[in-house]
């Protein structure tokens, strides 16, 4: 791969691809001060090491990178070279603009992506929740980047579609590698615990089975079977046990309204909350609160 540098707004090759902010291959043969200071941006930045050894600080953590390593910088995360210096070697990078939705910081791709919405959400979730920004030995990523370069520079018939497909492929590859890396696919209880923590951290999110399955790195059918045999519940029913138990704690604290509790714990309305709660416990949320705040009749 030869060196090149494409920049959105400057390079005409990127004109049809508003979501590609930068795409480049750079060979660095001298070490210069302040050549690689810490920055952050709103796009997802993907780096792939072709040659050499790099020492970077990503979101305040130190990483050493070797050829074949892929680095994923989340939107808003800081990153730069150790001491602001870019080490000697060869790198390829691509910056892709994504939309981040408040309040749960959901990552969405633009209309360029041909992936269905639920898969994008699942991939976005995996990217966001990954606890390591570095994937080792991902030669496939190098191949995809190479192909993207080929499409952009040669502009054969269909290159517009093909380039976007390749970016989709790159994200799928990264998401799969991240799930494989997180848990070795050996310890279901451990993976399930990761999932449990993710669910609890973001209980108000409208979780789908697809998203949950993706976090564990399984297809929805296998995932549902595994969860059922491990926990006794379907994934969504398991989620309900967490929602209701969190809701009970909030009801007993008596400082949030029932409606707020319903929304905080992921029910779409206080009506939905009340019905589910009553069906399970026999009490409406307000009755339950009353019983537990002054349950003198039981003493």
């Amino acid at each position: 791969m030869n060196q090149f540098f494409l920049l959105q707004g400057v390079s005409k090759e990127l004109h049809p691809f508003a979501h590609i902010i930068e795409f480049a291959i750079k060979r660095n043969s001298t070490v210069q001060l302040n050549s690689f200071n810490e920055t952050s941006s709103n796009s997802i930045r993907i780096y792939y090491v072709l040659e050499g050894k790099f020492e970077w600080v990503i979101n305040d953590n130190h990483h050493i990178l070797y050829p074949g390593d892929l680095v994923l910088i989340q939107p808003g995360h800081k990153f730069g070279g150790q001491k602001g210096v870019l080490d000697i070697g060869k790198l390829c990078w691509i910056y892709i603009e994504v939309n981040k939705h408040e309040p749960d910081e959901r990552i969405m791709f633009g209309r360029w992506s041909s992936l269905p919405k639920n898969e994008i959400l699942a991939i976005g979730k995996i990217l966001r929740l990954c606890n390591t920004p570095v994937l080792s030995r991902v030669k496939e990523a190098g191949n995809i980047l190479n192909e993207i370069q080929h499409e952009l520079l040669n502009q054969q018939i269909g290159y517009f579609t093909r380039t976007n497909q390749l970016i989709d492929e790159l994200f799928i590859l990264i998401a799969r590698k991240l799930t494989l890396q997180n848990d070795t696919h050996r310890d279901f209880p451990q993976s399930f615990m990761h999932l449990e923590n993710a669910l609890r951290q973001n209980l108000s999110h409208n979780w789908t089975v697809e998203e949950m399955a993706a976090m564990v790195g399984l297809g929805t059918t296998t995932f549902t079977e595994k969860v059922k045999s491990y926990s006794g519940f379907s994934p969504l029913n398991y989620l309900i046990t967490i929602r209701i138990s969190e809701a009970i704690k909030l009801l007993k604290q008596n400082d949030l309204s029932v409606t707020d509790i319903a929304l905080d714990t992921g029910f779409y309305s206080s009506q939905h909350f009340s019905t589910t709660f009553k069906k399970l416990t026999g009490y409406t949320p307000s009755e339950f609160r009353k019983k537990n705040i002054s349950n003198d009749q039981d003493q």
Partner: peptide, 15 residues
């Protein structure tokens, strides 16, 4: 362990 989760799980399974 979360006592409310144990309680709700017990109730749900029992029901």
């Amino acid at each position: 362990q979360d006592p409310e989760q144990l309680f709700i799980t017990m109730l749900y399974v029992l029901k």
